[in-house]
């Protein structure tokens, strides 16, 4: 399958010569630029299975490489290296080292669902992006991304109490990502609202900080969820260790979008 997005040609593989004659033909200059071919020798034959075992990755085997996902992508429009079609290709071919070149941007998917909306093969590429980001962290290739830290903090609060509290999510996230709580734009927003808010609101916010919003009788649900998360994580680790095969989704492919 040819890869023809121009951004995929690496600058170091573009060879332009000021003065080069081959077999009597002058091939100097910009119009005679060569592209050095890539040779991939190391494959991870388990790669597709590993991604399929991660949250959201179980439909990756359906991909036809039509490229609708990349074409529709919100992030691709501002970061051309963000290319879901290409990454799905690499994963299915087992080209792990190639995939790792982009390891620091894969987490940037904003979950706008344009890809899932347009995909004719029901791959749910958005889920595959999240699965891949999860896999990168699990394998230790990247530190947990800010998004990963945010997701974990958020999920933790829900598992513990059934609900979240905005201020607590914000504070814990900034603390865990080592960012100052006092950021110019956040303080500007704080001042803007503080000017107009009635005292009643301040009291309400302070109240929510002390007595966190909680779903009544959540303890049983908390234990059920903690057990389930533990179960899912063990399955994921078993697949990565090559001891188990992931469950591919057998849900029928929906009719193609018109």
């Amino acid at each position: 399958m040819p890869i023809h997005e121009k951004s995929l040609i690496r600058p170091e593989n573009l060879k332009t010569h000021d003065n080069l004659v081959i077999e009597g033909i002058d091939v100097s200059g910009h119009w005679s630029t060569f592209i050095e071919s890539r040779v991939v020798t190391d494959y991870n034959e388990n790669l597709e299975d590993e991604i399929a075992a991660m949250p959201g990755g179980d439909k990756i085997h359906r991909c036809w490489q039509c490229g609708s996902c990349t074409n529709a992508c919100t992030v691709n429009a501002i970061e051309p290296r963000f290319n879901p079609r290409y990454w799905i290709y690499l994963i299915r071919m087992g080209m792990e080292s190639e995939l790792l070149r982009d390891k620091d941007i894969i987490w940037q998917c904003v979950s706008c669902h344009k890809c899932t909306h347009i995909c004719p093969r029901d791959v749910e590429p958005e889920g595959v992006m999240k699965a891949t980001a999860h896999w990168l962290t699990m394998k230790g290739y990247t530190p947990p991304s800010p998004s990963h830290i945010f997701d974990e903090e958020f999920t933790h609060q829900i598992v513990q109490r059934g609900r979240i509290e905005d201020t607590e999510v914000l504070q814990n996230f900034l603390r865990k990502t080592k960012q100052p709580l006092m950021q110019d734009w956040l303080t500007a927003i704080g001042f803007a609202i503080a000017k107009r808010l009635p005292v009643k609101w301040g009291i309400k916010m302070a109240w929510a900080q002390i007595f966190k919003p909680k779903t009544r009788g959540w303890d049983k649900a908390r234990i059920a969820l903690e057990d389930y998360i533990h179960e899912v994580e063990s399955e994921q680790k078993a697949v990565i260790a090559g001891k188990s095969k992931p469950q591919q989704s057998h849900a029928p492919v929906r009719e193609a979008a018109e």
């Binding site: 959201g56 889920g127 997701d151 958020f154 829900i158 059934g162």
Partner: peptide, 18 residues
């Protein structure tokens, strides 16, 4: 009555079935 969070946009990244 006594609702809980729907999972927002974050929980599915930990596990969609949660």
């Amino acid at each position: 009555s006594n609702w809980n969070c729907c999972g927002a946009m974050e929980v599915k990244n930990v596990d969609p079935k949660i």
